[in-house]
Nucleic acid binder design. Sequence first.
DNA 1: GACGTATATATCGAATCGATATAGACTGGT
DNA 2: ACCAGTCTATATCGATTCGATATATACGTC
Lengths: 172, 172
Amino acid sequence: MLDFAVLGLLMERARHGYELKRALGELGFWKVSFGSLYPALRRLEKRGAISAVSGTGRRKAYQITDEGLKIFDTLLKADPDASETERAFQIRLAFLGHLPRERRVQVLEGRRTKLSTNLKSAREILIDARSNTENQDRYRLALMEHAMATTESDIAWLDGLVAAERGVASQN
Amino acid sequence: MLDFAVLGLLMERARHGYELKRALGELGFWKVSFGSLYPALRRLEKRGAISAVSGTGRRKAYQITDEGLKIFDTLLKADPDASETERAFQIRLAFLGHLPRERRVQVLEGRRTKLSTNLKSAREILIDARSNTENQDRYRLALMEHAMATTESDIAWLDGLVAAERGVASQN
DNA sequence: GACGTATATATCGAATCGATATAGACTGGT
DNA sequence: ACCAGTCTATATCGATTCGATATATACGTC
């Protein structure tokens, strides 16, 4: 998924490693390490998805190639499987604008469904935990409750995004 | 940190691997993989922190040893360094009840401070992104905004936990 | 022009993931 | 009684990612 993210960022313009790391961090959910990023760049270069265009000083800027564009497109269009991670979803979301509206809504609703399912089982687990004398630890319960509240808020946020897509019929 | 979590769960009672995986997942934040868990169990066994007590059928239940108790205690009391992960904090929180109230409040407030700092820089980045013609992508901005909102809600939650600690003077 | 700080690339070992293999235990249907 | 299917459970593999550290360049400032 890091490869997907890197390609997505390079779609806009050429960037060097450090800049990619910063950009990913600024999206707010992934402080990727150098130990992940630089190997990823070499991986992508070896696959012919990106190519180095030397920058000032020590910098090595990379630009996406035609092959890279093809790979990005494939990853973008692949429909997210059920086991997709929180992080994978967020990366997908960061580049969702590249998909047509109809597909965007599909992705958002797929995620919504998954979170709803998670929430339902979390509720059951919580009820169980509360009625279980052994699991009465205050902080454990607080963690579970907070995780649920966060999921609920995520769902509401997704609903907002879907509503925005449906409301703005003139776009795309 | 997985070692810490495993030891913490084994503090209550002996458990086998599958059960530990389930219990960690039910806390709501970590669906640990078998590829992490089983090696971790062997790691801990080799260190003498846990010992196998055979269960029914294929099960291998583990119990915490005296050495394990010592290790858990050390990890529990170590003050969380600034670079501590979201996940590491949550594990710490799950076992926070083992610390005296004064220390619990310290841990919560330390986390609060860190989140506040994150939030401040996120705000700056967002302002920057909005005034940057290049970064106008709707979904990117939505991601950043949602991440901020989630952090704000996390802070409020921490405040609630601290208030609960301070309010209940009779406990511990 | 020396000094400290921010920028930038690189690499190592260890932890973790995701997928897969294997097999025992329980359940329901015939 | 037996077989099929599903759930439980342990184990292992290769690839990814992390966290720490090393090193070098650019830049401001005194």
